Amino acid sequence: MTFKLIINGKTLKGETTTEAVDAATAEKVFKQYANDNGLDGEWTYDDATKTFTITE
């Protein structure tokens, strides 16, 4: 399955995708991506669209 991450950061904005077997796996990938890029914010997830959002 394809999951999307929408980034609404103070300095970084955009989106990225990952292929994962489930939402929990995708969340780990996206949280590592956010950590690697210095993002810290509030996370939301929409199961209907398989989309995570981080807002700083």
Results as ranks from 00 to 15, higher is better:
M1F: 13
M1L: 15
M1H: 14
M1T: 15
M1D: 10
M1G: 12
M1Q: 14
M1Y: 15
M1C: 08
T2I: 13
F3D: 00
F3E: 00
F3G: 00
F3Q: 00
K4V: 10
K4Y: 13
K4E: 03
K4T: 14
K4F: 13
L5F: 09
L5C: 05
L5E: 00
L5P: 00
L5A: 02
L5H: 00
L5Q: 00
L5R: 00
I6C: 06
I6S: 04
I6Q: 06
I6G: 02
I7R: 02
I7M: 08
I7S: 03
I7E: 02
I7L: 08
N8I: 15
N8Y: 14
N8M: 13
N8Q: 11
N8V: 08
N8F: 12
G9I: 15
G9E: 03
G9H: 11
G9C: 10
G9A: 07
G9M: 15
G9R: 05
K10H: 11
K10A: 10
K10N: 10
K10M: 13
K10P: 08
T11W: 13
T11G: 10
T11S: 08
T11L: 12
T11A: 09
L12H: 13
L12F: 14
L12G: 10
L12V: 13
L12Y: 14
L12S: 10
K13N: 09
K13I: 11
K13L: 08
K13V: 12
K13Y: 13
K13M: 10
K13W: 10
G14K: 12
G14T: 11
G14I: 15
G14V: 15
G14P: 06
E15K: 05
E15D: 07
E15T: 12
E15W: 12
E15N: 06
T16S: 07
T16Y: 15
T16V: 14
T16W: 15
T16M: 15
T16N: 05
T16E: 08
T16G: 04
T16A: 13
T17Q: 12
T17W: 14
T17G: 04
T17R: 07
T17K: 09
T18D: 02
T18W: 06
T18L: 08
T18V: 14
T18K: 04
T18F: 11
T18A: 07
T18Q: 05
E19V: 15
E19K: 10
E19D: 10
E19R: 08
E19M: 14
A20R: 03
A20K: 03
A20Y: 02
A20E: 04
V21I: 14
V21K: 09
V21E: 12
D22I: 03
D22V: 03
D22H: 04
D22C: 04
D22P: 01
D22G: 04
D22S: 06
D22K: 03
D22T: 05
D22N: 09
D22Y: 03
A23G: 05
A23E: 08
A23S: 13
A23C: 07
A23Y: 12
A24Q: 12
A24M: 14
A24I: 10
A24E: 10
A24C: 09
A24R: 10
T25I: 08
T25F: 08
A26W: 01
A26V: 02
A26H: 00
A26R: 00
A26I: 01
A26M: 01
A26Y: 00
A26L: 01
E27A: 13
E27K: 09
E27N: 05
E27M: 11
E27I: 12
E27P: 00
E27G: 06
K28E: 10
K28D: 06
K28T: 09
K28F: 12
K28L: 09
K28C: 06
V29Q: 09
V29F: 15
V29N: 06
V29Y: 15
V29E: 06
V29G: 04
V29K: 10
V29L: 14
V29P: 01
V29D: 05
F30N: 00
F30E: 00
F30L: 04
F30M: 02
F30S: 00
K31V: 07
K31Y: 06
K31L: 08
K31C: 05
K31P: 00
K31G: 04
K31S: 05
K31Q: 08
Q32G: 06
Q32D: 07
Q32Y: 04
Q32M: 11
Q32N: 10
Q32S: 08
Q32A: 13
Q32K: 15
Q32T: 12
Y33M: 04
Y33V: 04
Y33H: 04
Y33C: 03
A34Y: 03
A34T: 07
A34R: 02
A34F: 03
N35L: 13
N35R: 15
N35H: 14
N35D: 10
N35Q: 14
N35G: 06
N35Y: 15
N35K: 15
D36H: 07
D36P: 01
D36C: 07
D36V: 13
D36Q: 12
D36Y: 09
N37K: 14
N37M: 15
N37S: 08
N37D: 03
N37T: 06
N37Y: 12
N37L: 15
G38P: 01
G38A: 09
G38H: 12
G38Y: 08
G38T: 05
L39H: 05
L39N: 03
L39V: 11
L39F: 11
L39K: 02
L39T: 03
L39I: 14
L39D: 02
L39G: 02
L39A: 04
L39E: 02
D40F: 13
D40V: 14
D40A: 14
D40P: 04
D40H: 14
D40G: 09
D40K: 14
D40R: 15
D40I: 15
D40T: 15
G41V: 03
G41N: 01
G41A: 03
G41H: 02
G41I: 02
G41D: 02
G41L: 02
E42G: 06
E42K: 13
E42Y: 12
E42R: 11
E42T: 10
E42A: 09
W43V: 03
W43R: 01
W43T: 02
W43L: 06
W43Y: 03
T44L: 07
T44N: 06
T44K: 09
T44D: 10
Y45S: 01
Y45M: 02
Y45Q: 01
Y45C: 01
Y45F: 05
Y45H: 02
Y45A: 01
D46F: 04
D46H: 06
D46N: 11
D46Y: 04
D46A: 04
D46I: 05
D46M: 04
D46K: 04
D46L: 04
D47N: 09
D47T: 08
D47V: 10
D47C: 06
D47Y: 07
D47K: 09
D47H: 10
D47A: 11
D47E: 13
D47R: 07
A48F: 12
A48I: 15
A48D: 13
A48Y: 11
A48P: 10
A48T: 12
A48S: 11
A48H: 11
T49I: 08
T49M: 07
T49D: 06
T49V: 06
T49Q: 08
T49Y: 05
K50M: 11
K50A: 07
T51S: 05
T51W: 03
T51I: 06
T51K: 03
F52M: 02
F52C: 00
F52E: 00
F52Q: 00
F52T: 00
F52N: 00
F52S: 00
F52P: 00
T53C: 06
T53H: 05
T53L: 05
T53D: 02
T53K: 05
T53G: 03
T53W: 08
I54V: 12
I54W: 04
I54D: 00
I54T: 02
T55G: 04
T55S: 08
T55K: 05
T55R: 06
T55E: 07
T55N: 11
T55D: 06
T55M: 06
T55C: 05
T55Q: 06
E56Q: 09
E56V: 14
E56T: 09
E56M: 14
E56S: 07
E56I: 14
E56R: 04
